[in-house]
Structure formats: structure tokens, C-alpha cells
């Protein structure tokens, strides 16, 4: 029997592979550990150097597809170029990062390939009957196990769920770079920074105090700001839902679509710990979580867990801190 193939769609950002791409490679190695053949597909404008680099470090065969229209991502030229390669390759699995590129592309590819599509996969399980893909549902309150009903499967891999392998391969993979035959002359896409992004204090902060929907009302932001102000390089962060409510601007948002941060200390206040938020802060050196729900998923990654109503706990904490009573340190 011919070896099963696993295709990995690489994602580039400002001329480099994204972290999520390396994580998808780790995922594909696990998925194919029974002996599948891996291949990396790199769509882009000018990618030979990158293709050679990843073939050398990973030992995986690489196909690059080049075209002017593959500079910045947009669905039509990317899908068309990738489909051309996939039709020849005929892989059992097509793996992408669950990023703004990956989830834009994957469902359409699956329809075209007659494949199942399973998104935001964060765990794989295998038994004698087959391979199962696991993912979070209901903001992390439930885990579901899904099984494809088709020969082919398109998967997106949740960022942060697999670690990047640092091991370099002894034997470089092969490199083939082809010109894409596309009806699109050039990329008609431009990149811009989201408004307010530049004023964000999050990148330089040593301590981030973050507010989630659990703070209850906008007025309670006062105590979050006050707590952040206690630390010399403290900043206020937020979950997406707090930004959506308009309580804080999007420049404060941490998580999957916002910023990824790794401060020395992260204090999560009223944040349930949906996977989208956790993926943006789990590399913080120390995490303290304050939440009234003892089953909140955020406690799964916190170093110190405080089950309290934050509207009572934070004022008590601030009160003790402000008193500066040295006996509290003993």
C-alpha cells in the first residue's frame, strides 16, 4: 500500500514562517507518526530561500508555489494555487494553522476536495478503529471528539496546542518551486495596522492586569486600573468580550485575534479562560487568576488561583497594599 500523505500549508508573515506554521509541522509529525509522508506547501511571491531553509531544518519535502498574486493573503488566488498542487499530491490530510489565513482557506478547500473539515484541533487520539480529533467547544467548557466520515480531511490546528520541535534534521528534504498558473495578475491586498494599535502599552509591560466579562460592569474597571497602577510597568489588558462591549479599546485586547503577551506577571480578573484568550497569554511567567467560578478553565493554567468575587477581593487587596503595613509581609 502506498504511504499516506500529509500536506502542510505554510503561512508567511513579513517574509518569515509564522510560529503557528512550525506548530502545524509538529502536529503533522504526530499525526503521521505511523509512517505517513509529509510535504510542506508554501504559497508566496518569492519563497525559494524560505523553501530551502525549511527543507533543511525540518527534513521534510517542500513544494513552493510562486506568483505575484500570492504576496499577501486573499482567498481566491491562494485557494486556486494550493488546489492545483493538492490535486497531484492527493494527500489524506491537509493541515493549516487555525489563523486568519487558515480558517479563511480551510472550509473552501474542503468543499472543493470533497473532504471533511475539522477546525481548531488541539489534540489527536488514535485507537484500532481510527483517528479522532479533539477540540474545545463553548469557550472551553466542553471538549468534543470528532471523526471524519470521508477519505480526505482538512484540518486547522489551534495555535499554542503543539510545541515547536527544535530538533534539526540530518537529511534535508527536497525542494521544488513552481510558478502558479493564476488568473490573478497581482495581489490586490494591502496590509495596515489596526487603529490605536501603536498606543498599546501591552508590549512593554512587566505586569498585565486583565479584565474579562466577569468584572460585571464598566465601573469596575476603576479597580483593575488601580491594581495595574501598583506595579511600576503595569498595563491593563482585556478579553475580547470586554472590548466588544466598548468598555476598553481593542488595543487592550489579548488573545487569538488580539495581542500575544508574555509578561512576568499576568493577573486575570473575571476571565473564564476561553481558549482564544489563553492562546494569547499562556507564556506569561506567572499567572494569577481571580474568578468566582471554581471550575473556570483559567484555573487550569494559573499558578495561583483565587476563588472570590473580584469586586470584593480586589478592593480588599488594594486596601492592604495601600496600608503598607510591613506585618503583612511576615
Amino acid at each position: 500500500m502506498m504511504k499516506e500523505k500529509i500536506a502542510i500549508i505554510a503561512e508567511l508573515y513579513r517574509g518569515r514562517f509564522t510560529r503557528a506554521t512550525h506548530e502545524v509541522i509538529s502536529f503533522a509529525r504526530e499525526l503521521g507518526s505511523a509512517g505517513a509522508r509529509l510535504e510542506i506547501i508554501i504559497p508566496g511571491k518569492n519563497i525559494r530561500g524560505l523553501a530551502e531553509e525549511i527543507a533543511r531544518t525540518s527534513g521534510i519535502d517542500v513544494i513552493g508555489i510562486e506568483a505575484e498574486a500570492l504576496d499577501l493573503y486573499s482567498a481566491e488566488p491562494f485557494r486556486s494555487a494550493i488546489l492545483d498542487i493538492l490535486k497531484d499530491m492527493n494527500p489524506a490530510y491537509v493541515c493549516l494553522p487555525h489563523s486568519a489565513m487558515g480558517f479563511d482557506l480551510a472550509p473552501g478547500l474542503a468543499v472543493d476536495l470533497g473532504a471533511a473539515c475539522i477546525t481548531a484541533v488541539d489534540e489527536v487520539r488514535e485507537d484500532e478503529k481510527g483517528i479522532y480529533f479533539l477540540k474545545s467547544m463553548w469557550g472551553g467548557k466542553m471538549r468534543a471528539e470528532l471523526v471524519p466520515m470521508t477519505q480526505r480531511v482538512v484540518l486547522t490546528v489551534l495555535p499554542g496546542a503543539w510545541t515547536i520541535s527544535v530538533e534539526e534534521s540530518d537529511l534535508a528534504g527536497s525542494v521544488r518551486v513552481v510558478k502558479a498558473k493564476l488568473a490573478f495578475e497581482a495581489s490586490e491586498v494591502t496590509l495596515m495596522e489596526a487603529p490605536g494599535e501603536r498606543e498599546s502599552e501591552l508590549p512593554g509591560a512587566d505586569v498585565i492586569v486583565s479584565a474579562g466579562r466577569g468584572i460585571g460592569k464598566e465601573e469596575n474597571l476603576g479597580m483593575i486600573r488601580k491594581l495595574a497602577g501598583i506595579f511600576s510597568r503595569g498595563a491593563v489588558g482585556a478579553s475580547r468580550s470586554v472590548c466588544d462591549l466598548g468598555w476598553l479599546g481593542y488595543k487592550h485586547q489579548i488573545g487569538f485575534t488580539g495581542r500575544t503577551v508574555s509578561p512576568g506577571l499576568y493577573i486575570a480578573c473575571g476571565i473564564s479562560g476561553a481558549i482564544q484568550h489563553i492562546s494569547g497569554m499562556k507564556d506569561s511567567q506567572m499567572v494569577i487568576a481571580i474568578n468566582i467560578d471554581p471550575h473556570a478553565p483559567i484555573f487550569g493554567i494559573a499558578d495561583y488561583c483565587i476563588v472570590e468575587d473580584l469586586t470584593e477581593f480586589i478592593p480588599a487587596l488594594l486596601d492592604l497594599m495601600e496600608r503598607g503595613d510591613p506585618s503583612i509581609f511576615s
Partner: peptide, 14 residues
């Protein structure tokens, strides 16, 4: 094209 075969609560392994 896919089937959900099992559902469980995550173990919050604090």
C-alpha cells in the same frame, strides 16, 4: 462530513 462521537467536560487539572 464529520461526526461528533463524544463530548466531555475538560479536566481542569489545576
Amino acid at each position: 462530513r464529520d461526526r461528533l462521537i463524544s463530548m466531555r467536560r475538560p479536566e481542569v487539572s489545576a
